[in-house]
Simulated scan of single mutants.
Amino acid sequence: MKSGNKELDDIIKDMVSTVTNSKDEIFQIGEDSRGEYDKLHQELESIKHQVVGLIDKGDEIERKVRSSRLRLSQVSKQFRQYSEEDIRKVYEQTHGLQMDLSMTREKEKQLRERRDEIEMRLRNLDATIERAEALSGKISVVLNYLTEDFKNVTQTLQSAKEKQEFGLQIIEAQEEERRRLSREIHDGPAQSLANVMLRSDLVERIFDERGAEEALVEMRNVRKLVRSALYDVRRIIYDLRPMALDDLGLIPTLKKYLATIEEYNKLQINFTSLGRERRLESKYEVAIFRLIQEAVQNAVKHAEADSIDVKVELRNEKTRIVIKDDGKGFDPEVKKDKSFGLMGMRERVDMVNGELHIQSSPGQGTIVTIELPLNE
């Protein structure tokens, strides 16, 4: 049995290594795409200015051509009053202006074609960046299961029944995470990027019909939509695994996370930290962060709260967490189908031998109280 356990641990380590390498490669693809996007965007801005300049130059040359043609017509009608040299000069001037106009219009056409090519490439890069961000997020979920939920899994799986139940729980949690990611991406960045595609197709039409100034205004609006979509994608990935938790610790990461949620959802979140701020074991920091994250997300999405109070009290032997919201509340005694959020919270609390209490009733908000022992 020990040999089998060791083999399973080795397999999991290999899986973690492979998935980590894949995540790094996908991240590099996203970064390379962002770098190319920035370069193309700068070139696009330069081309737009050049097009505007060529349009003005072409219009000016066109006015000169009309004036020169009129002069040539007058000279032709009254050729007896002009010398052959005068007639030749007027003709050559008119011909030269027509050549300049033709070259200017041709250069403008080439720049327009390059502009259209760059805009198409930017749209493709947006799609590539979006896919890379989405894949990176999904891989982060897989790594989370492999490094946290599967860590030393053989120590807790003592029977075939336990293994089967554990596997079913993981599959169920994975499917729920995929559904959550799918909903967030569909409702957030996917909608924004679809809007970007529609709005970007209008830019050239606006340029032709209303002029360069209004087209530039529309491009700026499209740029804002792209920024918003990228913000949503990065927020989703941050929710999956904030790197600041490893670098800064629990309290600073919570402050940053709650500030982001407060700003993005336009609500009020009051955070209070009591006790000596210090680093905890990784399993406790991850557990506390995930529990607060799940409770806050429930308050935002399901309870539709306007105000949330989060209090974390770090004592020597245990920590006490209270999340209170003014949302629509619910009846804790009534079990809902697929209530994975609360089920996941209870399982995570049980894993660290803690206690979870939920006080709520319809229309009265919700208070989630969590107590975890710190066996340091």
Rank of each mutant, 00 (worst) to 15 (best):
R205W: 00
I206Q: 08
S192C: 06
V222C: 11
D187T: 00
Q191V: 04
L202S: 06
E218Q: 07
E213I: 03
M219A: 12
S192L: 14
V203D: 03
E213D: 07
L216C: 14
R220D: 09
V203R: 02
E204T: 10
R183M: 10
V203E: 11
A194K: 05
M219V: 04
E184V: 00
R199Q: 15
M219N: 13
V196Y: 02
G188I: 09
V217S: 07
N195W: 04
P189H: 05
V196Q: 04
R205E: 07
G211H: 02
H186F: 03
V217D: 07
K224W: 08
R183Q: 10
G211R: 03
A215D: 05
G211L: 08
G188P: 01
E218C: 03
N195L: 12
D201P: 02
N195G: 14
R223N: 14
L193T: 04
D187S: 02
R199A: 12
H186N: 13
R199K: 14
A215E: 02
I206W: 04
R183W: 06
Q191R: 14
D208F: 15
E214P: 09
R220S: 08
L202W: 02
E204C: 08
E218L: 15
D187W: 01
D201H: 11
E218M: 08
S200D: 10
R210E: 14
V203K: 05
I206V: 13
R199D: 15
E184Y: 09
L198A: 06
R183P: 03
I185T: 13
M197V: 07
E214M: 11
I206C: 12
V217A: 14
S192E: 07
R199I: 04
G211M: 05
E213A: 11
S192Q: 01
P189T: 12
Q191E: 13
E213T: 07
E184W: 01
D208N: 13
A212E: 02
E184S: 10
M219W: 05
S200K: 08
P189V: 08
M197K: 10
P189G: 12
R223M: 05
S182W: 03
L193E: 01
H186D: 13
A212R: 03
I206A: 08
L193I: 07
R205L: 09
L193N: 04
F207R: 15
R199Y: 09
E218I: 00
L198P: 00
E214A: 08
H186R: 09
G188W: 05
D208T: 08
S182D: 13
E209L: 10
I185V: 15
N221Y: 06
D187Q: 05
S192V: 08
D201Y: 08
G188A: 04
N195S: 15
L193D: 00
M219Y: 11
E204K: 15
V222I: 06
A190D: 14
